[in-house]
Design a protein around this nucleic acid. Structure first.
Lengths: 204, 204
DNA sequence: ACGGATCCATCATTGGATCCAG
DNA sequence: CTGGATCCAATGATGGATCCGT
């Protein structure tokens, strides 16, 4: 209900109501729309690993929508956890837990930040087909990670779920399992949903 | 040499030279003298676990000196590391490493913060006797910690080295080994040198 | 007097994502 | 187009210690 009430409002209106200054340059505003919506909807906030609406177990995701009506960007899901990934199974995986129940809020990614309008939110849980698609990609990727092939993984892999860097820059380093039980220092990575997947959700 | 050059200067002079505003209330300035000296001496700074002067392996400690010429406070050494303490031995312990080579800088703890004067620095390494004293206390305390008796330890223990809380407040919690291989959540603690010990160093 | 409680600055980490060169 | 690179806010952890009631 709170999300529906925000439909049609601009980010500038939200920022004003919350007393937040919007950055001038777009590239300095990467996470801002998501944080405005967290606050406007009374999400628990902060950097804790719990869902945004902890008591409800619901995750909030904002999606930038281009002029054609389709998502302009992929959606970050969670980190690739180096130590856990080898022993993780899909049912208890971080990816599955994170995507178990999501409130998707589209935001028009057109024009100045302050003029961008919030669209109709959609509360979603994966259908059997959607979960099957995610699981297939996840199992392929987790298998590679578990065998120490992290350096072989590019963002090309996965039909709907992919792995890409998640770091302040390309020089950052984290430990990941390497070949034959060794470890390698490489750029930290995260799971992302391709925009083809979010398009399917938001379009249906 | 840089430390000697600072002898006789006030903290106000240092703050001015470094462009730092000193807090009005003393209780809001707890770590400030130490941080001013780090900067003035070109210490590596920050919160890394390395020595202040990394290349030299030297730790910087400021000591507040009362009107009678003796240290007014104990000196914090390092955290009590819950997981390591059970397997640690004195020669490789964090306490010993931290105190292996210290530059002690006395600061008169009299009057307003800005008027307090820096004294004559002393570059120190523990003598055999001093190390023996520290080791005896450390082994007693480490033994208690290893046996899970953390809750039994008060600051009364140890002639020269003691264990006290090290936290933002008394509600903070960290894990420590408890009795019989269990763990307990208790306030995080640190090792401190009693002022009787630093008095011995600075007086000699 | 001093043991337990507390305070600040800075860096590291996490969660929010979008940018942009080829 | 899009894979790899990057940017911000807010917490959490670490290192600097001193405060202050009993």
């Amino acid at each position: 209900m709170r999300a529906e009430a925000l439909s049609g409002r601009t980010l500038g209106e939200l920022a004003l109501a919350l007393g937040v200054r919007l950055p001038e340059e777009p590239r300095r505003a990467k996470g801002i729309p998501g944080q405005l919506l967290e606050r406007a909807l009374g999400a628990d906030g902060g950097s804790r690993p719990e869902p945004d609406f902890g008591a409800l177990g619901i995750e909030l995701k904002t999606v930038p929508i281009g002029p054609e009506g389709r998502p302009r960007e992929s959606t970050y899901v969670c980190k690739v956890a180096s130590l856990e990934i080898a022993h993780e199974e899909w049912p208890s995986s971080r990816v599955r837990r994170k995507l178990a129940h999501v409130l998707w809020v589209p935001v028009a990614a057109v024009g100045a930040l302050a003029e961008r309008r919030i669209g109709a939110a959609r509360l979603w849980q994966p259908s059997s087909e959607e979960e099957g698609d995610l699981r297939a990609d996840w199992e392929e990727l987790a298998g590679l990670l578990g065998s120490g092939a992290v350096e072989e993984i590019t963002a090309h892999r996965g039909r709907f779920l992919q792995i890409r860097p998640k770091a302040a820059d390309g020089d950052e380093r984290g430990v990941m399992p390497g070949p034959d039980g060794t470890t390698v220092a490489t750029v930290p990575r995260g799971f992302y949903l391709r925009s083809s997947f979010t398009e399917r959700i938001l379009g249906s």
